[in-house]
Design a binder for these strands. Structure first.
Length: 927
RNA sequence: GCCCGGGUGGUGGAAUGGUAGACACGAAGGACUUAAAAUCCUUUGGGCAGUGAUGCCUGUACGGGUUCGAGUCCCGUCUCGGGUACCA
């Protein structure tokens, strides 16, 4: 009887489904453990072999944790709102819900094919109304809260208005819009309800703002910063331009410090944490107000080097700066207008391309340096960004390279400010060493003293203060698209209001087309008679893709709850994610927004923990491994040449489908049959009897003919082999190309395991009840130890060889003993659940119980050796091996080693300088 | 430019500072078979010597260093991958 993986796997998948083997309850005596995979967007292409890598790892870990006595939550769902389904809808007119449904069906089929232990009864889909009802509900909570700096958390808008009524705006230290007005309690009380409401809009955690946004005409929508890569859209690669639009925003900046500090408390990869730190971009510095010469107004700059202020020789403001018109003198107007125009016309991409070019224009005005009364010219230049700091910088050419370039280009003075600065006529020197020169009140001081002195001086006069700046901006939350959550907001007298909670979910209306309206409104503008209470206009934009994924881990805890996003009991039990597995590409998107929403949900009493995921592991990307065949140029008939011989001809490489290539050898017949563009008389110059292909690592994509579907691998070798092989391929976190060359190794291992139970030809059952020998127990416990330790640290690639070694050893020992094989099956079950279920039953156990078995306990006694083979080194090189008792004393070992024949030969009669004996390790004789 | 990771046989990859190359693929040779498949056995980093058992030299990107001992730690260089960038 052969290892009939197809029958076995089908049988157990059906068994698990029928018996709800992986169903998890919210009540248990057992400790909880929450293992989550980043849920996929169900694309039309289906899963390729890269997708399951993380799922297999998390599944092994979940199964292991179950065997270790945990109640494990391990769910799966779908991030089912998104652009591709909508782009497809635009082309075909088919409702995105339909294609999404089809794709999900396909995904579930593929996932079930691999034997994951997901509790499918908890599946969620972000595009279902009973799910997005709660996404909308969270939006409403954000709208109803503001961030209070004193409490350092979100508080209700009711608290805000109460404080306003009692203490006026001074009584509130909140994160709010720049233009939030100042008023007394009396003034507040005197305002109309509408006026008061308008003021609160400047405080809410989600708010409307005219923001400079990334507008992507190709997709017809705005994009968040993290959705733009290199000036083009991440999805589709369309150009992106800056545009001023009224948008819903999320006040994520209110949480900047908590997002930053929380990173120190979580077990995430250093690279992800570093990316988030950079994205948040906290910088400590000072703001300084410069009086404009001859005018009332001041220009405020942000600087991290206030100590260099005596070296300021110019000031630069962004071309978009609001003071540009008032600072421009009549003589300079023409030049300034031309520059501003030119900046506007340039796309973000152009601007990035021309980073090194110095450009700018003088406004004609000056500011006065508050410290030395120096008159300093004001320039416009596009290296100053309107969106960062105050949109204005002080130019200190001796200490900053950009400023130095600018000063050199415009022939402005370069003043040294520290005696430690070197070669500043060649380049800027940003040193903080030495003592200040040419620097008024800080002359002779060092960096620390100077910074403190200057900041105090500024604060005393109200001209500036120490300030913290963030690179992170508030997140744009509107998308001018159809296939997303409708924003639960309507407009009355031009102001946004939330719909009643009882009206949730606000469902997506039907539209005739998925395109913007003729007047440029988003697709929702096409919905007929879509008005709140039949009267008020709804918000027409929808939420971004990250909305639904920013809280989904809670929904799995209680997926069918119609009254709450999840019950308090469920959340109290499951708390947060213990292990989260997913791609590192979500570093500054999903993973940051999720932390933000979780913190907010904690502030309003829903989330129990500050961080949503204690540990995060980023699985590596599986790249494609393309195969090439080589066509001889201008050959008639068309001729292809095998890889080894291609250098003898002038050839063009062509991609060939990797699915008809094995071990880089092309199946020529299949190739002929599959390609209509290959003429029947085509010639193949073989290398012996083989036609060998070349290969290259590329992105896995249809156009490169290198996509491998897990279904095909499962069909050929089975799910257990696929699972083992994906783990065997290398460390989980490494990126690696998919290469089936070694898959027969894991397949052979499973067959070898099978042969420990059943004789190959006859199918005879071989398992006996004999007592295991110490040697067999040693082999087994070596594996138990190794595998247990490896799983704990997610080192699955090293546990697979441990299984292979055990199978090899047991084969050599001709061991078919039940006592040994039972434990073998149990340690292997998390990796290869189907075959282990089958063999577990073969050993006489109840069907379906292997998943609930305790993980075998390692017993060190079986590994105790009474002797050890010491490698004997002479000057660090191994020259001999000698066996000593495990408890042999170093001095005895030394004596015997020095008497050894080989050692004496190398000693050549000399006395060794030193003999190093490391017990149970090594002996090194130094001559 | 800056910040993170990496660089080990033909290939994927192992290796608490202690015998580098486990395990697997591939390759070569052999056994079984009418034959094939399957299975099993042997060899397999490179080089040199020997009929042989075996012995020696060399080897973890490169150059230095620390150490009795370095793939592993330190310094410098090259190189590949990822992230990020007029961020004041």
């Amino acid at each position: 009887m052969e290892y009939a993986f197809r029958d076995i796997e089908k049988k157990w998948q059906e068994f698990w489904e029928k018996n709800q083997t992986y169903r998890v309850e919210n009540q248990s005596e057992l400790p909880k453990y929450y293992v989550l995979d980043m849920f996929p967007y169900p694309s039309g292409a289906g899963l390729h072999v890269g997708h399951p890598l993380g799922y297999i790892a998390s599944d092994i870990f979940s199964r292991y944790k179950r065997m270790k006595g945990f109640n494990v939550l391990h769910p799966m769902g779908f991030d089912s709102f998104g652009l591709p389904a909508e782009q497809y809808a635009i082309q075909t007119g088919q409702h995105p819900a339909i294609t999404t449904e089809q794709n999900i069906t396909r995904y579930i089929e593929q996932l079930k094919n691999i034997g994951f232990s997901f509790d499918w009864s908890r599946e969620v889909r972000t595009s279902n109304t009973d799910y997005y009802k709660w996404t909308q509900w969270i939006f409403m909570q954000l709208f109803n809260h503001y961030y209070d700096k004193d409490a350092d958390q979100a508080l209700s808008i009711a608290t805000l208005t109460e404080t306003f009524a009692q203490k006026g705006s001074k009584g509130v230290h909140a994160v709010c819009d720049e233009d939030a007005p100042v008023f007394t309690a009396e003034e507040w009380q005197a305002k109309s309800e509408q006026e008061q409401y308008e003021i609160t809009l400047k405080y809410r955690l989600t708010y409307l703002a005219d923001a400079v946004v990334n507008w992507c005409p190709g997709l017809g929508t705005v994009l968040a910063n993290d959705e733009v890569k290199d000036g083009v859209s991440e999805r589709g690669g369309f150009p992106v331009e800056k545009k001023l639009m009224r948008q819903w925003m999320m006040r994520i900046t209110a949480y900047a410090d908590r997002l930053l500090n929380g990173l120190d408390t979580i077990d995430w990869s250093e690279s992800i944490k570093e990316q988030q730190r950079n994205w948040i971009g906290r910088s400590q510095g000072a703001s300084v107000k410069f009086q404009v010469d001859g005018q009332e107004q001041t220009i405020e700059v942000f600087t991290t080097r206030v100590d260099t202020i005596y070296g300021v020789s110019f000031m630069v403001i962004a071309p978009e700066h609001e003071l540009v018109p008032s600072l421009t003198t009549p003589e300079q107007k023409e030049a300034v207008d031309a520059y501003v125009d030119a900046t506007k016309r340039r796309s973000e991409l152009d601007r990035m391309m021309e980073v090194k070019k110095v450009s700018g224009v003088f406004t004609g005005s000056y500011v006065i340096n508050p410290f030395n009364e120096a008159k300093v010219p004001i320039y416009l230049a596009d290296y100053v960004l309107a969106g960062y700091g105050t949109g204005a910088v002080m130019g200190v050419p001796s200490g900053d390279q950009r400023d130095w370039n600018f000063a050199t280009h415009f022939d402005l003075p370069i003043v040294p400010i520290l005696d430690a600065q070197k070669d500043i006529d060649q380049q800027a020197d940003a040193t903080k060493e030495g003592q200040y020169i040419n620097s008024g009140i800080i002359n002779g001081m060092t960096y620390k003293e100077a910074t403190q002195t200057l900041t105090n001086w500024l604060e005393e006069r109200g001209l500036g203060k120490g300030k913290v700046n963030y690179r992170m901006r508030d997140a744009v939350f509107s998308r001018q698209r159809y296939w997303g959550e409708p924003v639960p907001v309507y407009f009355k007298n031009g102001l946004p209001y939330l719909i009643d909670e009882s009206d949730l979910p606000l469902e997506l209306p039907a539209v005739d087309k998925y395109l913007p309206t003729e007047t440029g409104e988003p697709p929702l503008g096409r919905a007929a008679d879509w008005k709140y209470k039949g009267e008020y206009e709804y918000e027409l934009s929808t939420m971004p893709g990250w909305a639904g994924s920013s809280w989904y881990w809670f929904r799995y805890m209680d997926p069918k709850n119609g009254n709450e996003l999840a019950s308090k009991e469920a959340i109290d039990y499951w708390q947060n994610i213990d292990l989260y597995v997913g791609g590192s590409e979500h570093a500054t998107g999903h993973l940051l927004y999720s932390r933000f929403w979780n913190k907010f949900l904690k502030d309003i009493g829903i989330a129990p923990e500050e961080e949503f995921a204690k540990k995060l592991v980023n699985q590596g990307m599986i790249q494609g491994r393309s195969n090439f065949i080589y066509r001889v140029k201008e050959s008639h008939p068309v001729t292809f040449v095998s890889f080894e011989l291609k250098d003898k001809y002038d050839v063009t490489p062509l991609h060939v489908d990797v699915n008809i290539v094995e071990q880089d050898v092309l199946d020529v017949e299949k190739f002929r049959a599959s390609r209509t563009d290959v003429p029947e008389d085509a010639l193949f110059i073989m290398d012996g009897d083989k036609f060998v292909c070349g290969w290259e690592v590329e992105k896995m994509s249809k156009s490169k003919f290198n996509v491998v579907n897990p279904d095909d691998v499962v069909e050929k070798y089975g799910a257990d082999t696929l699972r083992l092989y994906e783990m065997f391929l290398g460390p989980l976190t490494d990126s690696k190309p998919w290469n089936t060359n070694g898959i027969s190794g894991t397949f052979n291992f499973l067959r070898k395991l099978w042969r420990l139970f059943y004789e190959d030809q006859t199918g005879k059952y071989l398992v006996t009840d004999q007592q295991p020998t110490p040697e067999e127990l040693k082999a087994l416990h070596k594996a138990i130890k190794k595998v247990g330790e490896d799983i704990e640290v997610l080192s699955f690639n090293t546990s697979v060889p441990a299984f292979m070694v055990l199978a090899n050893e047991l084969t050599t020992l001709k061991c078919n003993k039940k006592a040994i094989l039972s434990d073998f099956v149990r340690i292997l079950a998390p990796f290869a659940p189907h075959i282990c279920e089958e063999l577990w039953v073969a050993l006489g156990n109840e069907p379906g119980t292997v998943t609930k078995q305790p993980f075998p306990v390692f017993n060190p006694a079986y590994l105790v050796e009474n002797s050890f083979d010491y490698p004997i080194q002479i000057n660090g090189k191994v020259r001999a091996t000698l066996t000593f008792a495990a408890d042999a004393q170093p001095k005895d070992i030394e004596a015997e080693v020095l008497a050894n024949e080989t050692v004496l030969k190398w000693l050549e009669g000399k006395t060794p300088k030193k003999v190093v004996v490391v017990p149970k390790r090594i002996v090194n004789v130094v001559i």
